[in-house]
Each structure stands twice: as structure tokens, then as C-alpha cells.
Simulated scan of single mutants.
Amino acid sequence: MARRERRSGNVPEVVLWRELRKRPEGFKFRRQHPLGAYSLDFACLEARLCVEVDGEHHARGDRPAADIIRDVAVAEHGFATLRVPAREVLSDLSAVITTIVTACRDRAPLHPRPAAGGPPPRSGEVL
């Protein structure tokens, strides 16, 4: 299912993916990442952050309640959800990227992993 979703992305998702795949501030993102019964629009595994691009249909009918249920399920897996309106992606992409990077920084581990070939962690340090 995730593979099919990656191929059929809507315009705001495609625009956002073009920027997120550049690894802003070193954060790596995955697109349409499967998590339990859901497929996350974008996920930063290091920061345990899910980014969902919401179109206008997310404000109608039973969608707000369904989104809350989804956010709770995602949180049970240790991920926070950041919902970004699709219109914001199209109108002010740089502000959206700044918001996403800030959220990643706020959730990233306190001690970054050492670079490849760097020294191992000291006794008692946990990665």
C-alpha cells in the first residue's frame, strides 16, 4: 500500500517531498512510511515525528474524529504528529520547512549518534 501511495502523491505532498528529501538540517525523512495500520505521509525516524499534509477534506464530516484516532494510534508507537495544511505547503513552503525542522530539533535525541568511524560511546552512555 505504501508503495502505491508514493506513486500517486498529490501536489502538496510532491512539493514538500522535493524539499524534505534534501535532508534539511540533516534530518532524514521517509515518504509514506508504514506504521501499524497506517501509512504516514512523511516520517523522521530520528525525531519520531510524523508529518501529515492535510487537504480541505480533513475538516469535513467524520475526518477530524478519524484524525484524532489516528494521532493517538501513532502516538502509541512513540511518534508525535505534525499536521500541515496543504494550502500552506503551496503558499509558504519555506515556513513549513522551518516548522518541520523546529519540531524535529525539539524531539531529536539529546545526544546525537557519533559519526561513522568516530569514537564509541563512553561507558554508561546509551544511544
Rank of each mutant, 00 (worst) to 15 (best):
residue 1 M to Q: 12
residue 1 M to E: 13
residue 1 M to I: 06
residue 1 M to K: 08
residue 3 R to A: 15
residue 4 R to V: 14
residue 5 E to Y: 15
residue 7 R to K: 14
residue 9 G to E: 09
residue 9 G to R: 15
residue 9 G to D: 08
residue 9 G to I: 03
residue 11 V to A: 05
residue 12 P to V: 00
residue 13 E to G: 09
residue 15 V to Q: 04
residue 15 V to S: 02
residue 17 W to F: 09
residue 17 W to N: 08
residue 17 W to K: 07
residue 18 R to A: 15
residue 19 E to Q: 15
residue 20 L to S: 01
residue 22 K to P: 02
residue 22 K to L: 15
residue 23 R to I: 01
residue 24 P to V: 13
residue 26 G to P: 14
residue 26 G to K: 12
residue 29 F to G: 10
residue 31 R to G: 07
residue 33 H to W: 15
residue 34 P to Y: 11
residue 34 P to F: 11
residue 35 L to N: 07
residue 36 G to C: 09
residue 36 G to H: 11
residue 38 Y to Q: 06
residue 39 S to K: 06
residue 40 L to S: 08
residue 41 D to S: 13
residue 42 F to Q: 10
residue 43 A to Y: 08
residue 44 C to L: 09
residue 46 E to I: 03
residue 47 A to N: 01
residue 47 A to L: 03
residue 48 R to M: 10
residue 49 L to A: 03
residue 50 C to G: 02
residue 50 C to R: 01
residue 50 C to Q: 01
residue 51 V to C: 04
residue 51 V to N: 01
residue 52 E to R: 06
residue 53 V to Y: 01
residue 55 G to I: 01
residue 57 H to C: 00
residue 57 H to L: 13
residue 58 H to Q: 08
residue 58 H to T: 07
residue 58 H to S: 11
residue 59 A to V: 10
residue 59 A to L: 14
residue 60 R to W: 10
residue 63 R to L: 12
residue 65 A to P: 01
residue 65 A to S: 12
residue 66 A to N: 12
residue 66 A to G: 04
residue 68 I to R: 08
residue 69 I to N: 04
residue 70 R to K: 15
residue 70 R to T: 03
residue 71 D to K: 05
residue 71 D to A: 14
residue 73 A to M: 04
residue 73 A to R: 03
residue 73 A to I: 00
residue 75 A to V: 03
residue 76 E to R: 12
residue 80 A to K: 09
residue 82 L to E: 05
residue 84 V to H: 05
residue 85 P to Q: 05
residue 86 A to P: 05
residue 87 R to W: 02
residue 88 E to C: 05
residue 88 E to H: 09
residue 91 S to E: 14
residue 93 L to A: 04
residue 93 L to Q: 02
residue 93 L to C: 05
residue 93 L to T: 03
residue 94 S to Y: 04
residue 97 I to F: 13
residue 97 I to S: 09
residue 99 T to D: 13
residue 99 T to Q: 15
residue 100 I to Y: 07
residue 100 I to T: 10
residue 101 V to R: 11
residue 101 V to M: 08
residue 102 T to M: 08
residue 107 R to A: 05
residue 107 R to Q: 01
residue 108 A to F: 00
residue 109 P to Q: 03
residue 110 L to W: 02
residue 110 L to F: 02
residue 112 P to D: 00
residue 115 A to W: 00
residue 117 G to R: 05
residue 118 G to Y: 08
residue 120 P to C: 09
residue 121 P to V: 07
residue 121 P to M: 10
residue 121 P to F: 13
residue 122 R to E: 14
residue 123 S to T: 13
residue 123 S to P: 07
residue 124 G to E: 10
residue 125 E to P: 03
